[in-house]
Design a protein around this nucleic acid. Structure first.
Lengths: 243, 243
DNA sequence: TTATTTCTTGACCAATTGGTCAGGTTTCAT
DNA sequence: ATGAAACCTGACCAATTGGTCAAGAAATAA
């Protein structure tokens, strides 16, 4: 399949950020190219994320993405070349979002505080970016062929680094012994399930969709579970954002 | 789309189970129709589960399923009519498997024993039927349009019944207070993640695939976590099947 | 203004896909 | 043995899909 770069006129090296045309009228009217490009690309990426989440990579059609972005299909191809390249772009954005919250788990932090904050951050992502979570889940579910390198390098390294933090906490008796890597797996599974499998959860709860109250209960239950697993008591300074 | 019944000659009401031809030779040579039908249908269902797991409902092709079943495509359509009907058949089988293990959570059981057994049973399903787990996950991920009724009736009723068991355990002080319904969500998420997102887990563990040892650690970690959440001590009479 | 580059899009195409069907083969009941 | 029912499958078809393209519009640079 063609590479993203052999398509359209994208990436010509120009950086004319508003240039000298930065009076309000011109900018508001999206009078310059770079601006319009940014807006269109963002629209397409957002539409693509939503369609890929709904139907998966193979099930999604560029026509559906174009319609969701309110642009002609040929325009979508002009900006991103191929469906695969567009999917990669969506996926790269998501992976960045996905890795971010882990950074705050540090040796010098308080275990209960850091773990609680990590869970609450993961739940914020679940609430605010359910489509992103679903695209990522779908990619993993079908073998992560568009993500394999990242998993085996970026993700693996990051998890190993953070697992060492947990191990050191265990050695110092700050948390009870528990397999640190598997603890991460279980935090991911627990938080993401509320985005990825929301229909199942909503159905069991007898709701049309998961509401604020249910997200709040979910979040508290997960925190309770992970802290109990580590033999910790709650840190109430890290607030549940749904309350 | 056409209903499954308007296709082929399936379901003619005949029940000629081996009839009077039940000498060994005849049966071994699959000499009778009902037998061959059963075998072919099973092959197709198995192939379909595997292909649907790999590619999702929309991404799967009847040609790929036929090839995996080592049958001509027209034959697959002869047996199951449409792709949708075949998918429904696969899904119905899976839902049965999925609901089964929950039955053993009963009021009169020992909480630690029952919860441990439930987790170990769920992990057995994860290890032995990863494709089934993936098909189910994929269906939920994309809105459960082929499963909605079951979720809102069968599953909801069963979970509510079993949640009442947990509630009664809580009231009697046999386990610590925890939201029973969300506890189920977290057990499902924790156990299924090792099937659905196996590539991610394998990548982080630096393995090609999750091995016996890792499954064993996973299982023990989940049991440890759920029991800690419920304020219970391990019941070592329920053995980890991977050890 | 004018030349150049970038952007836009309707129309089109080759490949794939779910599904059909006719005509032949096998199995079964009588 | 024989007719009927069930089974099998190569060949085919209409619909969908990812992707292309040419011709024009719009923005920018000279």
């Amino acid at each position: 399949m063609a590479s993203a770069l052999e398509s359209g006129g994208k990436n010509t090296g120009k950086l004319s950020l508003a240039g000298d045309q930065n009076n309000v009228d011109t900018v508001n009217k999206q009078g310059n190219r770079a601006n319009k490009r940014r807006i269109n690309e963002a629209h397409i990426l957002q539409a693509a994320e939503s369609i890929f989440a709904e139907r998966g990579y193979l099930g999604a059609t560029t026509a559906a993405i174009a319609e969701a972005a309110d642009l002609p299909k040929a325009n979508v191809h002009y900006y991103f070349g191929t469906k695969k390249a567009l999917y990669q772009a969506v996926l790269d954005n998501i992976l960045t979002l996905w890795l971010e919250p882990m950074q705050d788990i540090r040796e010098d932090a308080d275990p209960a505080t850091a773990l609680t904050a990590y869970i609450r951050e993961k739940m914020r992502y679940t609430r605010e970016r359910p489509s992103a979570s679903k695209v990522f889940a779908n990619e993993l579910l079908h073998g992560a062929v568009h993500l394999q390198n990242h998993l085996e390098t970026d993700l693996k390294d990051l998890v190993e680094e953070k697992a060492r933090v947990l191990t050191s906490w265990i050695e110092k008796g700050r948390i009870k012994p528990v397999d640190p890597v598997h603890l991460f797996f279980l935090i991911w599974a627990s938080t993401q399930t509320y985005a990825d499998f929301d229909v199942q959860i909503a159905a069991v709860l007898g709701k049309n969709k998961i509401g604020k109250k249910e997200f709040s209960t979910a979040e508290d239950t997960i925190v309770q579970m992970i802290l109990a697993t580590c033999g910790l008591v709650p840190d109430n300074s890290v607030l549940n954002q749904d309350k």
